[in-house]
Amino acid sequence: MTVLLKVEGITKRFRGLVAVDNVSLEVPQGAIYAVIGPNGAGKTTLFNMIAGEFAPNAGTIAFNGERVDGLSPDVICRRGVGRTFQIVKPFPALSVEDNVMVGALLRKPDIGAAREWTRVVLDRLDLFDKRAQRASSLTLPDRKRLEVARAIATEPKLLLLDEVMAGLRPTETDRMVDVFRRLNQNHGVTILLIEHVMRAVMALAQEILVLHHGAAIAKGAPKDVVREKAVIESYLGAEAVH
């Protein structure tokens, strides 16, 4: 089992606040790995360091065996990390198809080849019928899938999903879970997700990391993690465990 992403002891401080405190994790190639925790636990900060939005104050991040901490977001994307944003950021005035085209053109400079790949991706994310619509006119679930489509179009080895299930109805969540399972199993995309929706986490993740006040308080298989006392107290609440 090769390790695709290896985070070792990373720390991020904002002024006096320690947002992420000495966190380590290893995402194996082909896995679906989840990071959970209450609001303000440092999940998005952790993500932003992996995606290159900012550099950690301490610790290292290795992707595919190479150090990537401190590199800029575009370089990290070109190395093979795709991401979505917690607050969705599609290109609002562009059509759905052109949104995905931007991602596709990263590795397929030829317009024709990029367009073909775009259509494949749109089809995979169930967006093909909406390809001519402006991104700003889409519903929230569609915009979330569009962001995933744009990230997938850059042909990432690792996909970072920042709360893509938030705000979705249970049926839509199940549909998203299905999409990610297919991407993972059929197309070999490794996934690292931040998620509050435990229904999705339990269905998808093979391994979970729980953050609380910036520190890792639990790590392991989903069914074990949700029974740990610290996790229940800090995050899930007693009623979540059946």
């Binding site: 575009d74 994307c77 290109f91 609002p92 931007v102 990263l106 400079p109 990230a151």
Partner: peptide, 25 residues
């Protein structure tokens, strides 16, 4: 209609997202 044009539009629409899509803005 070129690759450059698509990347320009992406930068115009959302520069942070453009960078995250691998564009050397």
């Amino acid at each position: 209609r070129s690759r450059t044009g698509y990347f320009w539009l992406a930068i115009r629409e959302d520069e942070q997202a453009a960078r995250a899509t691998g564009i050397d803005t």
